[in-house]
Amino acid sequence: MLELTNIRKAFNQGRHNEYWALSGIDLAIPERKVTALRGPSGSGKTTLLTILGCLARPTEGRVRLKGEDISGLPERFLTEIRRQTFGFIFQQFNLIRGLSAIENVVLPAYPTGRPRKVLLERAEALLADVNLGHRRDAKVEWLSGGEQQRVAICRALINDPEALIADEPTANLDTKLSKEFLGILERLAASGRTIILTSHDPMVVESAVVDHVVTLRDGQIVDEK
């Protein structure tokens, strides 16, 4: 689905604190599979994830989405690709405080201009699917960590994206909630979505649901299984 060729990413380029987070990544992300990126802190997992999810552009190298080169596209087009193709689940969940669960879920669909009624119906169905139907009107700051993550998952799915991007999805969850997350992950994978995640957690990386594990160190791929 996604192909990266010789990807390099620099921060503070040209300044005294220039730093290369990725140096020469060649990677192919298979469609309808679960890919896990693992590695120690500072290995470049999150940077690689932002490039895969079109949140950032590489300093050098090519990114191809379904064979099409998207590395040189202006931000506006990247945003559209991001909205249509990817759903994001962030480590800190990044929900908007003060809004209810359902209002958070429909947010990514606002720029699409789909009718509100349709959006609310879809959001309700998604929340019901993760057993949160009864919490739809609760403000997100009142929800537990596990509930917040499920709201974040519903938000990632509102535009029915082909791929899901999850950054350290179990970092803020205990074992029980992590297992629940893996259950949801399994269902999402079974529904034919491409899933890319980063994780330190052996429980996630070594679980049966993960098809493809990429290990990074110092901005380079050191192992791929």
């Binding site: 931000e75 945003t79 994001f88 908007i96 405080r97 947010l107 990514p108």
Partner: peptide, 19 residues
């Protein structure tokens, strides 16, 4: 800082700068 964070979230989940 809260408003900046929210703008970051909106952009990440697919809002354009114009939106």
């Amino acid at each position: 800082a809260e408003e900046k964070r929210e703008i970051g979230i909106l952009k990440a989940i697919g809002w354009e700068t114009g939106d």
